[in-house]
Computed example of a mutant assay.
Amino acid sequence: MRNTRTLTRRAALTAATVTVALVLAACGNDSGSGHPGGHGSASSASSSTGADAAAAAHNTQDVSFAQGMVPHHQQALEMAELAADRASSAGVKGLASRIEKAQGPEIRTLGGWLTSWGEDVPTSSDSTTESMPGMDHSAGSAMPGMMDGSDMDDLDKASGTDFDTMFLTMMIDHHEGAVAMATTEKGKGLYGPATAMADSIISTQTEEIAEMKKLLGKS
Score class of each variant (00 low, 15 high):
Ala180Arg: 10
His137Phe: 06
Leu7Pro: 02
Thr129Gly: 12
Glu185Pro: 10
Met197Asp: 08
Ala16Val: 08
Gly134Cys: 07
Ser200Gln: 15
Thr17Trp: 13
Ala11Ser: 12
Ile209Ser: 03
Trp117His: 02
Ala42Ser: 12
Lys213Thr: 00
Thr128Lys: 08
Leu77Pro: 06
Ala66Thr: 04
Leu95Glu: 10
Ser97Asp: 10
Gln67Asn: 07
Gly134Tyr: 09
Asp173Pro: 00
Gly40Val: 14
Thr8Glu: 15
Glu81Ser: 11
Asp120Gln: 12
Phe65Gly: 08
Pro36Ser: 11
Leu114Lys: 06
Ala180His: 02
Gln75His: 01
Ser43Gly: 10
Gly91Thr: 03
Pro133Met: 06
Lys218Glu: 15
Asp156Arg: 12
His39Phe: 11
Ala12Asn: 14
Ala83Leu: 02
Gln103Asp: 06
Ala16Met: 14
His175Met: 03
Leu13His: 06
Val92Asn: 09
Arg108Pro: 00
Ala15Trp: 12
Gly140Cys: 08
Ile201Asn: 02
Gly91Val: 02
Asp136Lys: 14
Ser31Tyr: 15
Pro133Gln: 09
Gly160Phe: 08
Met147Ala: 15
Thr123Gly: 12
His35Asp: 13
Thr161Arg: 07
Thr6Met: 13
Arg108Gln: 15
Glu100Phe: 00
Leu24Ala: 13
Asp156Thr: 15
Leu82Ala: 07
Thr183Ser: 13
Arg5Asn: 13
Ser64Ala: 14
Thr184Met: 13
Arg108Phe: 03
Gly111Asn: 08
Ala182Ser: 11
Gly50Met: 07
Gln74Trp: 01
Ile99Ala: 04
Leu114Ser: 00
Ala96Cys: 05
Ser150His: 11
Gly112His: 03
Gly187Tyr: 04
Lys101Arg: 09
Ala57Trp: 04
Arg98Val: 12
Arg2Gly: 00
Thr8Phe: 12
Gly40Arg: 14
Ala15Pro: 10
Met132Gly: 08
Gly217His: 08
Ile107Ala: 09
Asp148Met: 00
Ala102Glu: 09
Gly28Arg: 04
Asp154Lys: 14
Gln67Thr: 07
Ser46Gly: 06
Ala57His: 02
Ala158His: 05
Met197Phe: 04
